[in-house]
């Protein structure tokens, strides 16, 4: 069950059935490309045919031109950098805190039982509820973005680590104990390999959530970054620029997802869910 379990709390995991299927028709990447082009064509057509007011939704070609122009601007990359710093810093703090706490709480049954109700109570509290508090404490400093990012991504990682620690095979654990492995060695060779797949799932989810919160806080509170640029473009009625920035935000999300998946595959190369062998 190890390989399947992380999917129950997160994004889809690649199934086992797909490899057997024979491929018919054009190859998948081409179809995917056709899908993107089709989407852009519809986007181009809607305002051109005046189905949608072109003032509110400029044609794709106009937005893409602004998007490409943006790539040559220093201000754009500065904004991307600011967003990424809030994202990365917040994610790092949340991950380390959640990993340490998760390992401590998870490996002690008293702590696990005692904290369960509190964790289940705090976890569903939406992080945006903290926006007013963050504004009061930090204003438009990076601190307010960090506070939201850390709160939101902390729970994603913590819950996964707790699941992971609970999943340790009792036989493996007892065997290691009777062979005289010390506490550190048991963490290194029994606990850690079991927890790692869960931890990576949590990290991937947290990375996506952290980006959402970083952008949200820039959009609403006004910390410098991509989100703030979107808000500025919107209030300045620079509609094409706004769409171009939104496109950039989506691209940033795609890149982050891709990188996280790559890291996951690298770190879990030994694990059966990645090796693609049958899971017993």
């Amino acid at each position: 069950m190890t390989a399947v379990a992380p999917s129950a709390s997160g994004q889809p995991v690649t199934g086992k059935g797909q490899k057997r299927r024979t491929r018919t028709g054009p190859p998948r990447p081409l179809l995917g490309l056709a899908g993107i082009i089709g989407f852009l064509l519809i986007w181009e057509a809607l305002p051109r045919l005046s189905v949608v007011n072109p003032d509110y939704l400029p044609p794709a070609s106009e937005v893409l031109v602004v998007f490409v122009q943006n790539l040559g601007l220093t201000a754009f990359w500065v904004a991307v950098g600011q967003t990424l710093i809030s994202w990365g810093l917040g994610l790092a703090v949340a991950t380390i805190a959640a990993l340490v706490l998760g390992l401590i709480i998870g490996s002690n049954s008293f702590l696990r039982k005692a904290t369960h109700s509190t964790i289940e109570f705090l976890r569903p509290i939406p992080s945006v509820a903290l926006i007013p508090l963050a504004v009061l404490l930090f204003g438009v400093d990076r601190g307010s973005a960090l506070m939201l990012v850390i709160y939101a991504s902390f729970w994603q990682v913590l819950i996964q680590v707790l699941y992971g620690v609970a999943d340790v095979d009792t036989v493996a654990h007892d065997t290691a104990k009777s062979y005289g492995l010390g506490a550190v060695a048991r963490i290194r060779y029994v606990l850690w390999p079991t927890t790692l797949p869960y931890f990576m799932t949590g990290l991937r989810l947290a990375a996506a959530v952290a980006l959402i919160l970083a952008i949200t806080s820039e959009l609403i509170i006004g910390n410098p970054g991509l989100g703030h640029q979107i808000a500025l473009a919107q209030s300045g009625a620079a509609i094409s620029a706004m769409y171009a920035l939104i496109l950039a935000t989506g691209m940033l999300g795609v890149v982050i997802n891709f990188v996280m998946r790559l890291i996951e595959r690298r770190t879990l190369a030994w694990h059966s869910s990645i090796r693609g062998e049958a899971v017993v």
Binding site: I230, T249, G250, V254
Partner: peptide, 30 residues
């Protein structure tokens, strides 16, 4: 539908990766 899946997959990946709050200004306009 297999071809539909292949056709829409990359576009959907983009929308999944797009942080939802940025759509607020867009929908406000539309």
């Amino acid at each position: 539908v297999r071809w539909l899946r292949a056709l829409t997959e990359p576009t959907l990946e983009f929308f999944r990766a797009l942080p939802p709050p940025v759509l607020v200004p867009v929908l406000m306009l539309l």
